[in-house]
Nucleic acid binder design. Structure first.
Lengths: 186, 186
DNA sequence: TTAATTAATGGACATTTGTCTTTTCTGCTC
DNA sequence: GAGCAGAAAAGACAAATGTCCATTAATTAA
């Protein structure tokens, strides 16, 4: 996490150490949950190793994969973290996972004492915004096949490491259709 | 704009007045542009009256409406504003529009002198994130008809006031299909 | 290692959505 | 009020995607 935080060139060494001093190690087995629907998200996880996926359940009972986090990234049910309202997301380990947990109260406390902490929180929100914008663009204008092809180009690790049934809902299509697209692309 | 800023209960009266003192009135006729593709976004517009739409052009030459802003909301090519990179968005007045413009350098200067300014910037980023999350959810799991029905419920002013050809691309469908959905819904 | 379970594939068909084009409607200008 | 231009609607057909189900492949558990 230290290297990751340094890569933004925003926080000082001391500020980074303060974050690290608050972090707790937390391990999950494959299939275990980091947060479940209905809870209020007040923890941010840094993924040291393994893969997490976030999904929500539709009224019809289908699981929709919203987000997938690999090594060296942050993961939380962000809109619940922001708003303090119960989340609709479930965040689950799809491999054994080693996390470093940061509590919201600690993050907020650092943000109150250090302007840089606040700047960093703003930067995170902005980065998340830009990532979602790319997704909106791709849903708006691309066919399912194009979305799959772009994922193959930009995030090959998704296709290599994530079960296809999760990828299908991430792309907004059915597993049947994803299987068909893959067959057509050989 | 003053009332709008007050509604967040975050900025002090003085801070709000500082923002207002930097704002410039700017009027656009129907069809005129606030920003064009390729420019770097360093201005935020508060819409005092009228309607703006943001669109980008696909490689095939189709205009895709990304975002629509009514009275009493902020509008900018946000990811370019954040990143400092050229935008892909065009922001156009679709009615005569009265704007209050805030320059990025002024906003940043206020954020440097006032922690509340920075908090406000963070809040804006978070709100934009949450709005996009809702859109991603809706593209992921809803059919075109459901997206249209939800828009009808949650943002009836969109259907009432926005040309359908713009709404179609906002929903990620063709005008032909939107017309069909509307015909089927009577 | 084998059995059991889950994931992925694929066939057959239905539904949704897109393409291309024409027609109708609406608002505007002269 | 006639004529024009752009927007919306709609017909006919094609392509994309979904549903339901059966089969095969891969994983997991005993």
């Amino acid at each position: 996490m230290k290297e990751y935080l340094q890569s933004f060139h925003l926080l000082t060494e001391d500020e980074i150490d303060t974050f690290l001093s608050k972090a707790e190690v937390y391990n999950l087995e494959r299939g275990e949950y980091f947060i479940r629907e209905g809870a209020i998200s007040n923890t941010v996880a840094f993924v040291e190793s393994g893969i997490l996926r976030s999904f929500y359940v539709t009224p019809e009972g289908d699981e929709m994969t919203y987000c997938i986090s690999f090594q060296n990234s942050f993961m939380t049910a962000y809109s619940s973290y922001i708003s303090g309202l119960p989340t609709v997301e479930n965040i689950q380990a799809i491999t054994p996972v080693r996390l470093l947990l940061l509590q919201k109260k600690d993050i907020e406390q650092i943000s109150e004492t250090s302007t840089n902490g606040l700047r960093f929180a703003k930067l995170m929100a902005e980065n998340e915004y830009m990532e979602l914008e790319r997704r909106v663009f791709s849903y708006q204008r691309e066919s399912a096949r194009e979305r799959y092809e772009n994922l193959l180009l930009t995030r090959p690790e998704f296709i290599e490491q994530i079960p296809l049934k999760y990828l299908a809902s991430y792309l907004g299509i059915t597993p049947r259709h994803l299987s068909r697209l893959r067959a057509e692309m050989i």
